[in-house]
Each structure stands twice: as C-alpha cells, then as structure tokens.
Nucleic acid binder design. Structure first.
Lengths: 338, 338
DNA sequence: CTGAAAGCGCTTACAG
DNA sequence: CTGAAAGCGCTTACAG
C-alpha cells in the first residue's frame, strides 16, 4: 500500500467518498479531477489530499455513460496471430492512441456468426466506431448501429449489402502484376493457388490472374486454378494437383501468406521447382534461396488508413461512403525470375 | 433500414422508449431483454416487437456500471505487430472469449510511462483484470488497483516491486540449453548478442549463457557479449564487434527474434559464417539454408496460461502470488550444428 | 405476473 | 467560488 493510503480491499472509493473526506460538494471534486477552473487553491489542495489518501481513480465508464462518447473503438479481424493482421492492427492501434481512444480487439476466425456477435458486443459497449475485417457476406445487421451514429470502416475486404467506408488493397491489380511478371519470364502455363472463392480478396486476386493471362493471350485450363481452404493438408493437395497432372504448371502465383508458406514447405517434395510469386510479403523472404518474389501489400497502411477514415467520420465528416484502394508492390527476389 | 424500423439518426432508443412503446414498465422490458422468467408470453411478445421496431440494443456499459463487473480485460504489450506478441495476444484473446470477456489491447512500445498510462486507463474503465507485458521496472502504481480488486497477471516479464502473478518462459534454462548445444558441437569462443540488459528476459538469457559457459569451463571475454538496442544499425554494429576482433567468435547465441533476424540479414556480409542458435522461433526458420536452429518459446502458451490464471483469480482464487515457468524447446535445424 | 423507486458513479444545467 | 438536484441507461430490492 502507498504511504497514507486507507483503501479497503475490494472497495473502490468514489467521488462521493472524496467529497465527504474533503468536506466539499460532489461537483467540487469533479472540478478538481477534471482540471476545471473555479476552485480556490486551498479547496483544490484539500480535495487532492483526499484523492491520494483514498486512492481514488475516476470511473471512466460512468463518466462516459453521462458524456455520450466512450473514447473507444472496436477492431474485428480474422486472427490476431497472423502476421498480416497483427501489423494491420498495430496501424489501427497507433491511430486510435493518437486520437485518445482505447481499442477493443476481437477475432472472428473467418466465422460470420462470430463476426456478428463480436461486432454487436462492441456496439453494445457503445464503441464510437468499428474497424472490421469482415468474415461474412451480409452486414445489414449493422444498419441500426450505423443509423444510431456508430462509425464503421471495413478494411481488407469490403462491406456487403450495406453502404459503408472501406479500405482495400488493389488485389486484382497486384495479381495482374504478379502474373504479368511471370509471363514476362516466359511462362505460359501459370497456376493460381488461392483461398476460398467466397472471400473477396481471393476472388479479386483470381480475377486479376485471369485478366493478366487473357491480356497475354494465354489460356487457363481448369487444372491451373485451385481455390480452397488454406490448412496445410488442403494446400498440399492443391499443389499436387497443379504440379502433378499431365500438363503441370511451370510457375505459380500463391494467393496469400499462409498458402505461400505451405507451398514453400512442400517445394522440396515436388519433382521439379516451379517459379513462384507469393501474394503478401513474409519476414524472411529475402533470406530464402532463391529469395521469394512477392506482391507485397501494406498492412500497416491499411490499418492506419482505415482508422484515420474512422476518426474523420467521428469528427463529423458525413459525406457518402468512401472506398480507398491502396497499391501493392511487386518485389522480385529470385523465385519468380526462373 | 430494416423493415418496420423507425430509428432516428444519432438517437439510440433506450429501455424507457421500449417500455413506452410496449406500454409496460421498465422492469418488464429488462426481464424480456435478459430472458428472466415471470413475463406472460403476450407481454413478452409486445416488448419484443417494440424492441425490433425501435432497433433497441441494450447498453452494456450502463448495465455494467450497475452490476459491478465489466466483463472486459486489458492486454498490455510491447508491440502488436511483433510475431511473438501477436501470437501471445491470440492466446489471451481465446481464453478471454471463452470466459465471456471482451479484450482491450494496447502497446507500450517499451516505454514505462506509456505502460503506466495505458494500464491506468484500462483500470479507469474498470476492466476486471489486466494481462501485462511490462516495460517498466516499478509497478507499485498498480497497488491501489490490486487493492480495489482488479486482477493482474504479468507475462513474459515479472512484476517489479509488487507481489503479483507472473507467467514466464524459462529464459535462463533456454539460454543454457542453446549454449550447451553449441559447446557440444565443439565451439569454445561463443558469443551472446542480447537485448538491453535492463530487460528481464535479456538479463536472464545472458545469465543462462554465462552459466552454461562456466559449466563447460569456458571463459567469457568482454568481447564475447554485447547487450543493447535491437534496431538494425545497433545489431549490425554489435555483430561486427563480436565477429571482427582479433579473436572472433565461432558461434553465436542471439537473444530474441528481432536480433536473430538482423543477424541473418547481415550474415552474407561477414568474412565467415559463425554457427548460430536463435532465441525464439521464426516462421520460415526451417526453410533457410541451413535451417535455423532455435530455442523456441511457446508464445501462445504464455498468453493462454496468463489469461487462465487471471480468470481463476476473478473466480475467487485468492492464494499468494503465483509464478508459472514455461519450458523452452531446442530445435536443431542446421545453423547450430556446424 | 408487473412495475415504481432507488442506486451504480459520474456530468450537466442551474442556482446561490 | 461552491454545491444540490436531475439525469445518463441500466439493475436491484421491494411491494403489490
């Protein structure tokens, strides 16, 4: 216990307790706690002593109930442990902090039901705003919240069936660039190994892949594309299909960091080594032999941009829903230049 | 807007509004909202209609002000984007979710002042408990909070100057094992490249290194140890010192994932290639050539264990402060076996 | 089965 | 400069 403290275990002193001890009114305590003017130095000093002695700490939850705003925002994403999302969340946290907001975080694990429960739980706590990496494909459940004034910005994937701000990477453009890069290396049978097709980013990257192939006049046989879950076994099976048939691919564009990782792990087991471009950068990519060529997104930028847009809305910006698109960047390091 | 909804922008309906519309008392609405018994089906139905029509959603912040517990916990760590901490936070999040709690997250950026501000901000929101990766070396500022009943568990690094639960990796043991491994490969001049010595984990790992060297009867010259900041330039300079003098080290134990990463990046620039064991596993470690030998921690286990301990405290466990130590695991992959 | 009153810990709007 | 009353949106403890 601190010197002079008289706190009792499990009992939090309130402003009322402070007021009693300092022999002043409640409002005077409130003035001192909030640095409002109009308190004589002597009175203020008496209040401050009482605060220290009792170990008083203002209850911000009660305060916010009265004030209306909670100075908190919710961040909802797939998986806190995924490097892509963890860097994204760092971006959101930085902006939240600099705007004086606390951050609720939750993971949906790609489950629409869980996305909805978490988003509504955040809203029930009356967060001022929500940054959402959506898992579901229908966000109308947020309409009452939007109507009530809760700001919502979607990031990485767009809002579905409601009008809301979104911040996305140029997924199709990135896939076009990655594919075009492989085409320029002379590849004609290029494979695309992507995530579940109902995931927006996966569909967009597949679209970019197809566009680039079409632009190069190259056909895409069904056996060149595989969309599905990204657990190790599924990716391994898909890789075997793309590289194992009568006409195996000579190059591969992998649809996200988890897929790229699994493909890299399986590469030694393949009968040959296809050229490889991965969507998303990996931390040791440059240290592999050959270095891993990637289409890099800017996860920190996605998070920062989404959060900045959110706070602009909270500051009163009431324009129509905005859609921000962040560019991707091709980084050749060797694996895609064979 | 949903069919039949009459919500007005920026105005949230309250239980009072629902009660008025359903022509019942406030308490009856409360009963329906909380699935309490003692409401006739007809009355309940009238209330439910009013809830839907108004788009009512209970204000959980107000609820918790009255109930006492907030069903939320705070997680405070160094950096949300660091893979080690992001996996740790996933562990905390999982346990929080399964205990029905929401999670506040904040990053201290290794700044004691920021740690304190964030921890107290969480407490001001009246989180039920706090999981803290501490940055500072004096946590007495939390004494009033502990006294008031807020549960606090320290993770990755211990509490300083207060008694509180902690969940740590066996840092000294892991460093001993990594060093011993290099000794068994025949190395005699082994270097240790660690984080700032005031960081508990860094000091512990250095201690383990020294113990293993002493146990092997090997001297440790000052030029074999470097403790300092982990930005790229500092690590590069330290590496040059350890490998550049008249008696360069033949093997190296690196003190954490950031340091290992920087050393790996600089390795090609060195005149020779020292054997290398890294503290912390890296995602692509097995795919490097040679594979990276590591002393792996269990970050998810640290997070889960800390959160489980926290909720046990919240469930009433009032025993003396507990200190849990999680084992590390040596994973030989090639870089340490030369 | 139903609801009016008091209270959770603050701030707001006023009055002195 | 100071403070009593009302209210934020709920739940608790009672009474009918």
């Amino acid at each position: 216990m601190l010197p002079g403290m008289t706190t009792q275990y499990g009992i939090r002193p309130t402003m009322k307790d402070v007021a009693a001890r300092a022999r002043v009114g409640l409002k005077t305590v409130s003035r001192v706690v909030n640095d409002e003017p109009g308190v004589t130095p002597e009175t203020a000093e008496r209040v401050r002593s009482a605060i220290t002695e009792l170990g008083f700490r203002r209850n911000d939850s009660a305060r916010m109930l009265r004030k209306g705003r909670t100075a908190s925002v919710g961040l909802l994403l797939e998986d806190l442990g995924d490097p892509f999302y963890s860097v994204l969340s760092r971006g959101v946290e930085e902006v939240a902090r600099s705007n004086g907001s606390l951050l609720f975080t939750g993971a949906s694990a790609e489950d629409p039901q869980r996305e909805r429960e978490l988003a509504l739980a955040f809203c029930a706590r009356r967060v001022d705003g929500l940054v959402v990496v959506p898992a579901g494909d229908d966000h109308r459940y947020l309409l009452p919240e939007l109507a009530a004034g809760t700001a919502v910005v979607f990031v990485d994937r767009p809002a579905e069936r409601i009008g809301a701000d979104s911040v996305l990477s140029d997924n199709a453009g990135g896939a076009r660039e990655g594919t075009g890069h492989l085409v320029r290396q002379g590849h004609r049978r290029i494979g695309f190994l992507g995530d579940l097709p109902q995931i927006h980013t996966a569909a967009e990257r597949l679209r970019g892949f197809r566009e680039a192939m079409a632009a190069a006049g190259l056909p895409v046989a069904p056996g060149q594309v595989s969309m599905g879950p990204t657990d190790p076994a599924s990716v391994a099976a898909a890789l075997d299909r793309l590289t194992g048939g009568p006409r195996p691919v000579t190059a591969l564009l992998t649809g996200n960091n988890r897929i790229t990782l699994e493909v890299l792990r399986r590469l030694p087991a393949l009968p040959y080594r296809p050229a490889l471009v991965g969507f998303d950068d990996l931390e040791l990519a440059e240290l592999l032999v050959p270095g891993l060529t990637v289409v890099a997104q800017d996860p920190a930028g996605l998070g920062r941009t989404a959060a900045e847009l959110l706070f602009r809305r909270l500051d009163g910006d009431a324009g129509p829903p905005r859609s921000v698109r962040l560019p991707t960047r091709l980084i050749p390091r060797g694996s895609g230049e064979t």
